[in-house]
Design a binder for these strands. Structure first.
Ligand code: FES
Ligand code: FES
Lengths: 144, 144
DNA sequence: CTTTAATCGGATAATTTTATCCGAGTTATA
DNA sequence: TATAACTCGGATAAAATTATCCGATTAAAG
């Protein structure tokens, strides 16, 4: 479904959000421990998220990563997925035809688009804020 | 969503089905032309499908691939996907936790399982027969 | 029996994805 | 101003996926 990079990216964003929600800043070491991911690979993904303004990075001692509190409700999971994996999952053909086109559909098209739209809807509606609330409330986990 | 190998596998199966439905046997060259896929890579996937008894292969001149007519309605898309990509898509955690476990769920779990079940349902209900009817009837396409 | 048209399957190559290394830059603090 | 704790980013390595090569085998047909 998602690439490994995207899975790490989603978990990292949620991890950062759980701290930002409490006004705390976190850093690479803490994040990758939190989500059980390879540190340097995670660093690359955080850079990418930072360049795309989804997170704010602070260099130097006591630096790290944070998300503006007012953005916690605005950033949706789909923003993260699109930043890392692009939008192929949301607009591409499930069988890999050059493009998904209802006027010349692949055999699974009509059955597939419902699923795709549902996925798009769920990821578009789910904010980081909800995710981090669930984790901070002990209802969900980033590591197991 | 699916790997390239799996996309080719699904399309190849449907291509074979369109011929088998008409009592014809097809072969590698024809299939990969039909679905616009690299010949030798497609050969590997067909071997895998053959070893798993989803298709029947015939060696020698005038050989090729075919699907028993009585199987066209029995083989479902999910059988093909599981053969090539395994069942991770259907049972694995969307965020890549070691396993998907509702008692210690990842943050997207409750939103994700609905989509996953829908996908499982659709692929479990869709037979090769339906797919090949659509293609033979000009309602769907394997190549564009 | 020979030729021809196929699949089989092991080996290799190319590409993409995942992961690591390390030197340079940045900033708080002693 | 020196040191320690960070991120940045380019280079490289490892692993997985995708793709190709080619000799062996099989079987139909002349
Ligand atoms: S054409 Fe294949 S999913 Fe739309
Ligand atoms: S635990 Fe992640 S999808 Fe179920």
């Amino acid at each position: 479904m998602f690439s490994k990079a995207c899975e790490y990216g989603l978990k990292a964003m949620i991890s950062i959000a759980t701290k930002s929600e409490k006004g705390q800043r976190t850093n690479l070491k803490e994040i990758s421990k939190d989500i059980n991911s390879p540190e340097q690979f995670t660093a690359k993904i955080l850079q990418q998220l930072s360049r795309n303004k989804l997170i704010h990075s602070v260099q130097g001692a006591h630096g790290g990563f944070e998300i503006q509190k007012e953005n916690l409700g605005k950033i949706k999971l789909i923003d993260i997925v699109k930043t890392i994996d692009g939008d192929k999952l949301f607009v591409g053909c499930g069988l890999g035809l050059n493009e998904c086109d209802a006027s010349k559909p692949c055999p699974i098209h009509h059955r597939f688009i419902g699923i795709r739209e549902n996925l798009t809807k769920v990821l578009s509606e789910t904010s980081l804020e909800k995710m981090s609330h669930d984790v901070n409330g002990g209802l969900a986990f980033l590591n197991r």
